[in-house]
Nucleic acid binder design. Sequence first.
DNA 1: AAGAGCAACAACCGCCTTGAT
DNA 2: TATCAAGGCGGTTGTTGCTCT
Length: 218
Amino acid sequence: MDHKKACNSSQELEVRKGPWTMEEDLILINYIANHGEGVWNTLAKAAGLKRTGKSCRLRWLNYLRPDVRRGNITNEEQLIIMELHAKWGNRWSKIAKHLPGRTDNEIKNYWRTRIQKHIKQADHHHNHQINVNHRQSSEMINDQGSTSSQLSSGTADAMESYSPRLTSYQGINYMDHHQTNINNNYPMVLPPVATSNIDQNYNWTMEDIWSMQLLNSD
DNA sequence: AAGAGCAACAACCGCCTTGAT
DNA sequence: TATCAAGGCGGTTGTTGCTCT
C-alpha cells in the first residue's frame, strides 16, 4: 500500500525537460485533435506526457498549432513590430495579436536578436557622431535614459543599418532549418501512423505530421 | 579540418492575474 | 473574503548550427 503510493509519487515527480521529441509532439497533437485544448495539467497527464501543463501549452501555442506561421518575417511585419513596440513596449502578446500566425515568443526573439541589436548599433553610431560634432552637449545623449519610444526613434536608422547578414538571414528557408533540428533531435522511431511514409531521403515537416494526424484521426 | 565565437531560436522560470470554490 | 490552481506573460538561459579564422 505504502510502497505503491511511494512508487506513484515518484512517477508523478518524473518530469521531462528540454527539447521535445517527435513522439511527444505527435502525442500532444493527437490528444488535442481528439479532446481539444485546455486544462493543460490534466491534458498532460491524460495524454501520458511526462511534461508540465505549462510546457505542453507553450509547445502547442508556439510550435504545433496548425495556424502558426514560421520564419521569414516580412518587411511589413518588421515595421508593424517596430511601430507597435514603440507604442506598447514589451507587450509581446499584445503585439502578436496584430500579426496573425506569429507568436509572442517568436516576436520577442526576433526583437531581441535583430531589431534591438541594430537599434543599439544605430544609437551607438548616432551618439558617436553627436559626440564628435558636439562634444560640449554630449551629456544630453544618454543611453541609460532610453525608453522604448526613444529607442524607436532610431527606427529609420535601424532599418538603414540592417546588415547584409540580416538580409541573407531573411532568405533562410526556415523549414530546412527545422528539418535539421528534427533530424538531430528526434528519435528515428516514428509512430505506426507514420511508418508507411518513412523514406530515407524524405524530410519530415510539421505540416506532414499535422496532415498525417488529421488523416489518422477518426 | 578543427575549434572558437556568435547568432538564432526553443524552452524554462518566476511572477502576476484570473477564476473557481 | 480568502485561498488555491491554472493560465498568461515577459525575462532569461541552454542548445544548436553557422561562420570565421
